[in-house]
């Protein structure tokens, strides 16, 4: 439906070329890559906010390359939201409807109400946008973009400027909203978990080039380049089966199945993942509110420049990220027996 053909853009110290993407109608597409690889620029080119040097953009077979942003019906949500500081929440949200001069006061009020309900932000309506929290700003920015019913929604690192707890919440909200509205979405991120949980398909980008495109599974299992393999890294990805008990799933271990407590309810089968930095490693058991605790043996310790990656065998291999200091303090080494602990909320189902 949306097609980028051989897009090229060059700045003083930055070059991006041969960008070819095809995004299907209603798809949630994630562009994944480290910061500074031109992901935001792709979005700005799609929205018509900056001009590509070469290449074409098609929307439903219509060449929109030379269309101005306002002719494209493509909504963009910037990383730091870009709420208009001189307008309150309400006037921010209805900005697009008001300037179009196509809607009556009643229609605007109705659409506004839909957005307020969708994002549960009715209580913010007359607030000064500068006093909102990160999560609130994000919801207002999304409402402002979605109220105009754009053909495509572009999200630039939508979760990177909020705290982790809010981020987790927003991931689920984004998913819910996409399921409800079905707006074709292109989401740019450096976070693999975000990509796994949200994406129908992923494109991995590096140095202004697309390294690989495909479904999450495919990228994880068959990385097409060394960069993809390294960037995607060792992720804790497991296939899980539902059990009779609520909030409990089984993952297949080497000898027997391992029971994991999660927040979401699943039926039948699913995949789950745990961020390596969300797992606590300890040399003894300790009591905590975290539901998941396992005993295992250290299989390998890899140096990752800024941190260490410890692979622990608890029946399946689990990667845990720790600092050099912790390694010293707990005298962690190969074959040592350790315990892994993580909260149910650290387990992401996708």
């Amino acid at each position: 439906m949306l097609k980028l053909e051989n897009i090229k853009k060059e700045y003083d110290d930055f070059k991006m070329e041969n960008i070819n993407l095809e995004i299907e109608s209603g798809e949630y597409f994630v562009i994944l890559g480290p910061t500074g690889t031109g992901k935001t620029i792709i979005l700005e080119i799609i929205a018509g906010l900056i001009k590509e040097d070469k290449g074409s953009i098609f929307f439903k077979d219509e060449n929109i390359t030379n269309y101005s942003p306002e002719e494209r019906k493509i909504g963009m949500v910037y990383q730091d939201y870009m709420l208009f500081p001189h307008l309150n929440v309400k006037n921010n949200i209805i900005f697009g409807l008001k300037i179009s001069n196509k809607y009556s006061k009643n229609e605007i009020e109705n659409k506004l109400q839909e957005m307020l309900d969708l994002f549960d932000i009715e209580n913010l309506l007359y607030r000064d946008v500068n006093t909102l929290s990160g999560g609130e700003k994000q919801r207002v920015a999304l409402a402002r973009a979605l109220i105009t019913s754009p053909d495509v929604l572009l999200l630039d690192e939508p979760l990177s400027a909020v705290d982790p707890v809010t981020g987790e919440k927003l991931i689920n909200e984004l998913k819910k909203i996409h399921n409800k509205l079905g707006t074709t979405t292109i989401h740019v991120t450096h976070d693999f978990v975000e990509a796994l949980v949200l994406a129908d398909r992923i494109a991995v980008m590096n140095n202004g080039k697309i390294e690989q495109k495909g479904e999450a599974e495919e990228i994880f299992q068959k990385p097409a380049s060394k960069f993809v393999a390294e960037f995607v890294g060792t992720k804790n990805i497991y296939e899980a089966k539902a059990t009779d008990a609520e909030n409990e799933v089984l993952i297949k271990g080497k000898s027997e199945d391992i029971k994991i407590t999660i927040i979401d309810n699943i039926n039948d089968k699913t995949n789950l993942t745990i961020r390596p930095e969300d797992i606590i490693i300890s040399t003894g058991t300790f009591s905590s509110s975290a539901c998941n605790s396992f005993k295992g043996k250290i299989k390998m310790i890899k140096d990752r420049l800024n941190y260490l990656e410890v692979i622990v065998d608890i029946g399946v291999d689990v990667a845990v990220h720790i600092t050099r200091q912790s390694l010293k303090e707990f005298d962690l080494k190969k074959e040592k027996e350790v315990y892994l602990t993580f909260k149910a909320s650290a387990v992401h189902v996708y």
Partner: peptide
Amino acid sequence: LERAARSLGA
């Protein structure tokens, strides 16, 4: 900020 306005149809 101005680009955001443009993408909203301004």
